[in-house]
Computed example of a mutant assay.
Amino acid sequence: MKTAFIFPGQGAQYVGMGKELSAYYKEADDIFSMADSILKMQLKKLCFEGPEEELKRTEITQPAILTVSTAALEVLKKEGISPDVVAGLSLGEYSALVAAGVISFKDALPLVQKRGKFMQEAVPEGKGTMAAIIGLKRFEVLRICKEASAEGIVEAANFNCPTQIVIAGDIQGVRRAMALAKERGAKKVVELPVSAPFHTSMLEPAGEKLFLELEKIDFYSPQIPFISNVTGDYVSDPEQIKVLLKKQVNSPVLWEDIIKRMIKDGVKVFIEVGPGKSLSSFVKKIDRNSAVINIEDLKTLEKVKHTLKEVAV
């Protein structure tokens, strides 16, 4: 019975994340200490105490979530729990690559901080936005984006699960698409509190800058099978992974495709490693029969252990 580790992206952050694991596991606390040392800032204090507004800044959020996810990963390793396959949503892809041994945490941390900065700088604040459309099929959302693009850039950004697709672009285009989605019978349409239209062509300049940084870092072949956001398929060539990370910034995230591929290949247990339960919710909507659990504190760690014992029987 195969187990997948899945790693959350931006938006999963909250004040207090990782604090309990850090207090009880030296392995987790060491990751926070390493992050403070590498970034020369009090990231640990920000994760544990906030303020929330500071933690929400993209160039802080991205290394913070990577750190919390890696700390949780170290706890799972300590407990003898390992995955058969890994993937992460957007930023979470970097946590997955650390888990797979493709990139070191030491190299990934400043890289995602720069990624956050480049993404923030690519589109002036107040120009772009994102919205979640719930209850329409993929082809319907793509058709709406095409129609609304007469008023401004609007593209599909995240295919999260069968009932939720996120669109992004400039404000006029996205809001026109939101209105069309409501007209076409969407159950819910929600504009998201984000500072940039992630995973759209508007972020291409960020991808170009990011690739210059990627080229400076050693990447290795995955020791654990890894599935890419851009292709929804396995990737093992280190240079191809770099190219896909560049494309990922301005390409839609094929999360539903990733989960379906894992299920097809025999994954029965999904463990969300890091803050929040958003990915767990998506997996449950894709396949109700899968065992889905998350780890972010001691209570959820115990649930992980209990579930793994149950499914092993």
Results as ranks from 00 to 15, higher is better:
residue 263 I to Y: 07
residue 190 V to W: 03
residue 50 G to P: 09
residue 57 R to M: 13
residue 142 L to R: 09
residue 122 A to R: 02
residue 280 S to L: 08
residue 173 G to D: 00
residue 64 A to L: 10
residue 274 G to E: 00
residue 40 K to H: 11
residue 112 V to L: 01
residue 5 F to Q: 02
residue 117 K to I: 05
residue 98 V to H: 02
residue 40 K to S: 14
residue 294 N to L: 07
residue 265 D to G: 04
residue 245 L to V: 07
residue 81 I to P: 00
residue 126 G to L: 12
residue 210 L to A: 06
residue 205 P to A: 09
residue 84 D to Q: 07
residue 169 G to P: 05
residue 27 E to M: 04
residue 145 C to K: 03
residue 244 L to R: 09
residue 4 A to Q: 03
residue 88 G to R: 00
residue 158 N to M: 04
residue 204 E to I: 10
residue 300 T to R: 06
residue 59 E to A: 09
residue 26 K to N: 15
residue 201 S to F: 10
residue 78 K to I: 00
residue 83 P to I: 00
residue 204 E to A: 02
residue 292 V to I: 12
residue 198 F to D: 06
residue 18 G to F: 11
residue 178 M to A: 12
residue 234 Y to F: 15
residue 147 E to C: 03
residue 31 I to W: 06
residue 40 K to E: 13
residue 121 E to D: 15
residue 220 Y to I: 07
residue 4 A to K: 08
residue 18 G to L: 05
residue 179 A to H: 12
residue 213 E to A: 12
residue 88 G to E: 01
residue 124 P to A: 03
residue 162 P to F: 01
residue 46 L to A: 09
residue 94 Y to I: 07
residue 109 L to H: 01
residue 88 G to F: 01
residue 106 K to A: 13
residue 51 P to H: 00
residue 281 S to R: 11
residue 223 Q to R: 15
residue 117 K to W: 03
residue 184 R to F: 12
residue 53 E to P: 09
residue 208 E to L: 13
residue 197 P to C: 06
residue 308 L to N: 01
